[in-house]
Amino acid sequence: MKKRSVFVVAVALCALALPAMSKDELPAVVVSSEPGKATITEAVKVTGTVESVDLQKRRVSIKGSHGKVQSLELGPDVRNLKQVKVGDRVVVRYAQALTLTLMKDGKELRGKTESVGGERSRKGKRPAGAVGQKVEVTADVVAVNRRTRTITLRGPQQKVDLKVRDPEQLKQIKVGDQIHAVYTEAVALSVEPAARARP
């Protein structure tokens, strides 16, 4: 999956690996910005047809509307996997968001917290599941380069350079400030009845 620059920063700060997924439809991306705060969100809906099912490995191969086959490994949250058959229609919804907030003269300790939650279908119902993850990171601003429009952040595990495209946002940031990043992602999968061929 292509990651926009702000998501690359979230991945670097949080040491996350986003699931690889082909997008059959263009993502809906929304960017909002106000002094000292920026948010980017992305939502994608992928539909396809089940090409193969490996119950032992809990792996399902899905052919998207553009003919590309993608293999997905389904965790235990996707219940009733035995009901999935070749030809079933599958819908995968994926959403992610990153909010960066400037904390002037920050006094917080650098840190990272993670939380995960999920839901799954009831026994006997069609297979489905949803998993959500939230990661929060507090990082110190250790350098500001106004010429290249970059800031250097030291997170709990590593340093990373962040390009700040908005000059008004860059004017507000100085060494000694902190950036609080909140990254959330959610993946939902559901299986729909296979479309019947017309006689």
Rank of each mutant, 00 (worst) to 15 (best):
E51T: 04
S52D: 08
S52R: 00
V53R: 01
V53G: 01
D54T: 04
D54V: 00
K57L: 05
R59G: 02
V60L: 04
S61R: 10
I62G: 03
G64A: 05
G64T: 05
G64F: 00
S65T: 02
S65F: 01
S65M: 04
H66R: 13
G67K: 00
G67T: 05
K68Y: 07
K68I: 09
V69M: 05
Q70G: 08
S71L: 04
S71P: 05
L72W: 09
E73T: 14
E73N: 11
E73K: 15
E73P: 02
D77N: 09
N80Y: 05
N80R: 01
N80V: 01
L81H: 05
K82Q: 15
Q83M: 14
Q83I: 02
Q83N: 10
Q83V: 02
V86E: 12
V86P: 04
V86N: 07
D88G: 03
R89C: 07
R89K: 13
V90Y: 00
V91G: 07
A95V: 08
A95R: 12
Q96P: 07
A97C: 06
A97I: 03
L98M: 10
T99F: 04
L102I: 04
L102W: 07
L102P: 01
L102S: 06
M103S: 12
K104V: 11
K104D: 11
D105P: 03
G106Y: 03
E108Y: 08
E108I: 00
R110N: 14
G111C: 06
K112A: 10
K112N: 10
K112P: 03
T113D: 15
S115K: 14
V116N: 15
V116Y: 14
G118K: 04
R120Y: 10
S121A: 15
K123A: 15
K123D: 15
K125L: 12
K125P: 01
P127E: 03
A128L: 06
A128Q: 12
A128F: 09
G129V: 00
A130T: 14
G132H: 05
K134T: 15
K134A: 13
V135G: 08
V135I: 14
V135D: 14
E136L: 09
E136K: 13
V137Y: 09
T138I: 13
A139E: 07
D140H: 06
V141C: 08
V141A: 09
V142P: 02
A143K: 13
A143L: 05
V144W: 06
V144C: 06
R147G: 09
R147E: 15
R147Y: 11
T148K: 12
T148E: 13
R149S: 15
T150N: 12
T150R: 13
